[in-house]
Simulated assay, not measured.
Amino acid sequence: MTSASTAVLTEIVLPGVVEPDGLFVNHRPVTAPGRGQALVEVEAAGVSFAEQSMRRGRYPGQPRFPFVPGYDLVGVVGRVGEGVAPGLVGQRVAVATKTGGWTTHAVVDAADLIPVQDGLDPVEVETLVVNGITAWQMLHRKARVAAGQTILVHGAGGGVGMTLVQLARHAGIRVIGTASPRQHDALRALGAEPIDYHDPDLAGRVRELAPGGVAAAFDHLGGPSFERSFDLLASGGTLVAYGTASRRDDTNNLLVGFAAIFARFGLWSLLPNGRGATFYNFWGGRLTRPAAFRRRMAADLTAVLTLLRDDAIAAQVGARLPLAEAGRAVALAESGTVSGKVVLIP
């Protein structure tokens, strides 16, 4: 077997604020894992909305350019460093990386690895790492929606949206989902009630379907959509915001923008009827309570993957493309023409 010191990896580099075709392929020696680390031979890496923001320099806390993007990955542990159980070698794992996933070999903290059950397609698993954890935590940890209640999911045809729809329906929750008309048949097949997100009377259509309001609204759009979603809540309902996609191409100060959102949510939560608004942070608690954060991540992804294994939910693969075609993959993901998640295969 080739040693890590002589093997060569392939990675995709984001050099700065560029168009998708500005990404470039780089080759360099594989780095051996250090103490507490593992070398993962990557089988699949996802293309997320985060990378769309990062290539515009608009993702909070992103590294300085140049860097290797890639928010999550699935692969097999090829080697471990000192202090890591040797039994991990050969184990298929998933890991949320935030950056660094678009590569053939990734060195990661072994504590962040989440074992993947046998028999699952790594590409299908990849679609459910960040998307599945996000959807599960928003539904069950943030909004705490109960069976029989109704929720509103914006962007229901996207990667997080389609996962959220399936998790909700599996839990006996009614789903109203906004999406483009071409995605409506797929959403109906998943048990959702679709609405055209371009409908000028979108709020009116939601009120027709849920006259008493919705128990929770999941909104990744931002801007005026947050206010509309909050207005559609039933008494005691929760708005869970998890992005500002409608502001993707803005050039305003990010910190000022988020401060305004948090201030508005705080004021809304003081209004009558017990309605609340919160902004979901995938990385919340990682720095302050890292052990609890990792346990929660592992438990939630394992729950989602168990549903996948048992055919209770289906992975939504928008496209599978070679790692070297990352630029085309990003352009495809940004085009809005695919349902589900675009996956890179090294």
Rank of each mutant, 00 (worst) to 15 (best):
A4H: 13
A7R: 10
L9M: 15
E11S: 11
F24G: 13
F24P: 09
G34A: 10
G36C: 07
E43M: 10
R56Q: 11
R64H: 15
P69T: 03
D72C: 05
G75T: 06
G78C: 09
G78W: 07
G81N: 05
V84K: 00
L88S: 10
V89F: 06
A94I: 06
A96E: 13
H105P: 03
I114S: 03
V116A: 04
D118A: 14
P122D: 04
V123D: 02
V130I: 15
G132R: 01
T134M: 02
R141P: 10
R141I: 12
R144A: 14
A146G: 11
G148P: 00
G148K: 00
V153Q: 00
G157K: 00
G159W: 02
G161R: 00
T163A: 10
T163L: 05
L167R: 00
I173N: 00
V175D: 00
T178S: 08
T178M: 05
A179E: 03
A179Y: 02
S180T: 08
Q183I: 15
H184A: 05
A192D: 02
H198N: 14
D199L: 08
G204M: 05
A210C: 05
A216K: 00
A217C: 05
F218C: 02
F218M: 03
P224R: 13
S225G: 11
F230N: 01
F230R: 04
L232M: 01
S235D: 15
G236D: 02
T238P: 05
L239K: 01
T244V: 13
R247C: 14
D250R: 09
D250V: 09
G257K: 09
F258V: 12
A260S: 15
G266V: 10
S269M: 09
L270A: 14
G274M: 01
R275P: 03
L287W: 13
A291T: 12
R294I: 09
R295L: 13
A299G: 11
D300N: 14
T302M: 06
V304F: 07
L305M: 06
L307Q: 08
L308Q: 01
Q316L: 12
V317F: 04
E334N: 13
S339L: 11
K341G: 08
I345E: 15
P346E: 04
